[in-house]
Computed example of a mutant assay.
Amino acid sequence: MKSILIVEDEVMIANGIEKMLRKHGYTDVMIAIDYEEALETLEENKVDLVLLDVNLSDEKNGIDLAATIKKNYHIPFIFLTSYTDPATLSKLKQVKPIGYLAKPIDQATLTANIDIYFANESDESTLFSFTIGSSVYQIDLAHLCYVQADHVYVELHLIDETVVVRSSLQALIEMFPENRLARINRSIAVNPDGIEKIEKGMIQIKDHRLKLSKTYQEEFFHKYWDK
């Protein structure tokens, strides 16, 4: 049974989230209301996932706690926040959460994020989930060919479908596992595992021929291509 720790200083909200999780089948749920209580819980219990409020009413906030969890416990966490402005999201990205959910928390979105994370956790799974706004996306990384920016959207080109999300290309790259997407020009990043050949500045992935620009060549060959 997976165990989940809720760190939320508003008891009614914490109890509401706990009720959502238990109703969905996650029965091993713990609650902490501040930084110190959260650390005590982590020391004394097995925790698989932390749901972490950003604004704890304490000297140390949720971002401080996230940094400590990442450094000392290596447990994944999802932020819960009422603030979705660019400045706040930029701070959240620095500690690399597996996602964030905007308050008020929607039960379907919450449980979908958690279900998908635990499904991705299996070493044998190539499924990957990510959250943009209130939308949760799941793709099979083994089927991903490349992603391409188109104004305020990014197209994810998979073997058998194309998924369109509202994001910048760089923001999307930062959401993915490290080195999973390699930038090859201003608007395109590829899945290095899918490359079949590189010839005369063109990258071949399935039926796609994509241009590797001179600007990105040195970094690309150094980090991703040693064949």
Rank of each mutant, 00 (worst) to 15 (best):
residue 72 N to C: 13
residue 31 I to F: 05
residue 107 Q to S: 10
residue 100 Y to K: 01
residue 107 Q to L: 09
residue 38 A to Y: 06
residue 70 K to A: 14
residue 93 K to Q: 07
residue 98 I to A: 10
residue 78 I to A: 02
residue 28 D to I: 13
residue 101 L to G: 00
residue 54 V to H: 03
residue 72 N to D: 15
residue 58 D to M: 10
residue 86 P to D: 04
residue 41 T to R: 10
residue 29 V to C: 03
residue 111 T to A: 01
residue 59 E to N: 13
residue 22 R to L: 08
residue 59 E to F: 13
residue 78 I to E: 00
residue 38 A to I: 05
residue 53 D to L: 12
residue 79 F to D: 01
residue 81 T to G: 09
residue 70 K to F: 10
residue 48 D to A: 07
residue 26 Y to E: 00
residue 51 L to D: 00
residue 29 V to H: 05
residue 55 N to P: 08
residue 54 V to K: 00
residue 55 N to W: 10
residue 67 A to M: 09
residue 19 K to V: 08
residue 102 A to Y: 02
residue 67 A to Q: 12
residue 112 A to R: 14
residue 101 L to T: 02
residue 20 M to L: 10
residue 92 L to P: 04
residue 27 T to I: 08
residue 91 K to I: 06
residue 84 T to D: 14
residue 66 A to F: 02
residue 22 R to E: 11
residue 104 P to Y: 07
residue 61 N to V: 05
residue 47 V to A: 05
residue 17 I to G: 02
residue 29 V to M: 03
residue 103 K to T: 00
residue 33 I to R: 09
residue 57 S to N: 15
residue 66 A to W: 01
residue 17 I to M: 05
residue 71 K to W: 12
residue 70 K to I: 13
residue 74 H to V: 07
residue 29 V to G: 04
residue 61 N to K: 04
residue 78 I to H: 00
residue 43 E to D: 15
residue 105 I to F: 06
residue 66 A to Y: 03
residue 28 D to T: 13
residue 43 E to M: 11
residue 44 E to M: 10
residue 71 K to Y: 12
residue 61 N to H: 04
residue 57 S to Q: 15
residue 92 L to I: 06
residue 18 E to Q: 13
residue 33 I to V: 13
residue 29 V to Y: 06
residue 56 L to G: 00
residue 62 G to N: 02
residue 19 K to R: 12
residue 48 D to V: 08
residue 116 I to T: 14
residue 31 I to G: 01
residue 37 E to T: 12
residue 105 I to H: 04
residue 113 N to I: 14
residue 105 I to N: 02
residue 100 Y to Q: 05
residue 25 G to Y: 03
residue 45 N to Q: 13
